[in-house]
Amino acid sequence: MSEIVLKVEDLHTSFFTRSGEFRAVDGVSFHVREAETFGLVGESACGKTVTGLSILRLLPEPAGKIVSGKITLDGTNILELSKKEMRAYRGAMISMILQDPMTSLNPVYTVGNQIAEPVRQHQRIQDKNMVEEKVISALRLLRIPAPERRLQDYPFQMSGGMRQRVVGSIAMSCYPRLLIADEPTTALDATIQAQYIALFKDVQKETDVAIIFITHDFGVVANMCHRVGVMYAGKIVETAATSTIFKAPRHPYTNALIHSVPRLDRKDDRLYSIEGQPPSLLNLPPGCRFAPRCPDVMDICNEQQPQEVEISEGHSVSCWKVK
């Protein structure tokens, strides 16, 4: 098996506000291997994006803080790096693609300029032609047609799909070890989505980059991810290979999520939805966080938090029902 690129162990990230401590990420552990895509799935505000930002150490200041845990990239605990050392990791070793390509590029600089920046910054190349070569190869990696002619274009001259490829080029320009993709296809329309995912599979094959794919879309998970972690209220409740998640989900939340995906092969009158709301991160229940909404709730669920149990190799679940 290929080597582990990123290992997150018992990560706790909180936001300290006037009304109290929001435990956005509360004890998350997972790992990603070389050339592997790990999906982080869950509904809005479950802590997916905060997990991603924690790995980059780019939490909104001064409220957001990593309280405890360990994040290791190729054996280095990046939480122990100085600010300057961390900056050298960003864009070079770890990259991220943001959700909305319409707003994530700077409107007043050319595409070429924006891709060249990380190349100049991290690879310390000053020679103009060499930088240009790197920029063109980054554009080519993302299959942007006629890259030489795109360098002088401004973002507003491009379509949404093209812009998201440019964002991808920026992320891949220094050939990072880890790429965090935060719902990169949500803002794209369905056909472009499929293209973008196929494109990223190719990019991964060519570069062996490890990808954390943050999404709430199980269709995307099925297409893109090798393994999946299902997040609920700041915790990963179930981790398994993608096929296992779909065929044999063990956590009631995973099961409910998969049931909420509309299907073509069944004629349901109404789409299944989970009753209730996720708990407030300010005031978490003492027991299992999903207990108030769980169809299979037992007494113990409301009293104690379940521990993570590995039920088969690579398949872990945190649920009292699973022994």
Partner: peptide, 22 residues
């Protein structure tokens, strides 16, 4: 507060460059 400033930070640019250029 914009996304492209977030992206500039993700790229690993220095804070000075982010403010005075981007």
């Amino acid at each position: 507060d914009s996304e492209y400033i977030k992206l500039a930070r993700i790229k690993g640019l220095s804070e000075r460059r982010i403010i005075w250029k981007h």
